[in-house]
Computed example of a mutant assay.
Amino acid sequence: MTDQLPRRFHLVRDVDETGTSGTGVVVEGLEFTDGTVALRWLTATTSTAIYASIADVETIHGHGGKTRVVWVDGQTEPHRQLIAQLRADRAIQLGIMQHAVDEEIREAASTLAYGCLHAIARTLRVFEGAAAAEAYLEQHADGGPLSRTTPDNPVASSDTTDNSGERQ
C-alpha cells in the first residue's frame, strides 16, 4: 500500500472550440495513486468519465494547449507523468501478448512489457526510494529483488553486491 493520496486538479479551458463547455474551470478531476484519472464535467449537462492517465486526458481534452491541467494539490512531479506513460505502454504490450498469434510477437511484447515494468521500478527508486520500487514490483511482477543486477533484472540498487547477491 502506498502512503500517497489521490491528487485533485481542474481542467481550465482558455478557448472553447466547440461552444459546449465554456471557458474557465470546466472539470473537477482526481488522479488516483495508480495513475487512473476521474473527471467530473461542470457543464450544464454533467457527466463523469474515467481515463487511464492524465496524459490521456490532456491528449483528448487539451485541444492543443487550449485546455490545461491545473493541480489543486500542487504541481505534478515529472516522474509521475513518466510512470503514467510507462504504465500505459506496458498495458498495450500485455494486450498484445494476450492476442498475438505469432510466438515471436508475443515474446517481443513480453520483453517490452518487462522493460516498462522495470523502468517504472527504477523511476520509483530514484524519486521515491527503494521501498516504493520494491512494493511496486511485488504488486505487479514476480516480486524479484531490486538489490542486485542480473541479466533478467537490470535495475540495481546503489548498494554494491557480489555475484551471489550478498552485500559487500
Rank of each mutant, 00 (worst) to 15 (best):
V101D: 09
P78V: 00
A44G: 06
A100Y: 07
W41N: 09
R106D: 04
Q98F: 00
R106H: 04
E77C: 00
R87S: 12
L82G: 01
T67C: 10
V72K: 12
A55L: 11
L39R: 01
A121M: 07
I92M: 01
A91Q: 11
V57R: 02
A113M: 07
K66Q: 14
D102E: 13
L94W: 03
D89Y: 05
H79N: 10
A113Q: 07
H63I: 01
T48Q: 14
H63S: 12
L117E: 15
D56K: 05
V69D: 10
Y51M: 06
I96Q: 10
A55W: 01
H118V: 02
A108M: 12
Y51A: 11
Q98C: 05
S47C: 06
D102K: 03
A49I: 12
I50R: 09
S53V: 10
D102W: 03
M97K: 09
A100G: 11
A88S: 14
I96F: 10
L112E: 15
A55C: 06
V70F: 11
G115C: 06
T43V: 13
Q93M: 14
H63L: 08
L39Y: 04
R80H: 09
A55M: 05
T76H: 03
I50H: 09
E107T: 07
A119K: 07
D73L: 03
T59C: 04
G74T: 08
L86N: 08
Y51P: 02
L82T: 14
L42V: 11
R68K: 12
I92F: 09
G95I: 05
D102P: 02
T43Y: 02
A109D: 10
E77Y: 03
L94A: 12
M97Y: 11
Q98W: 00
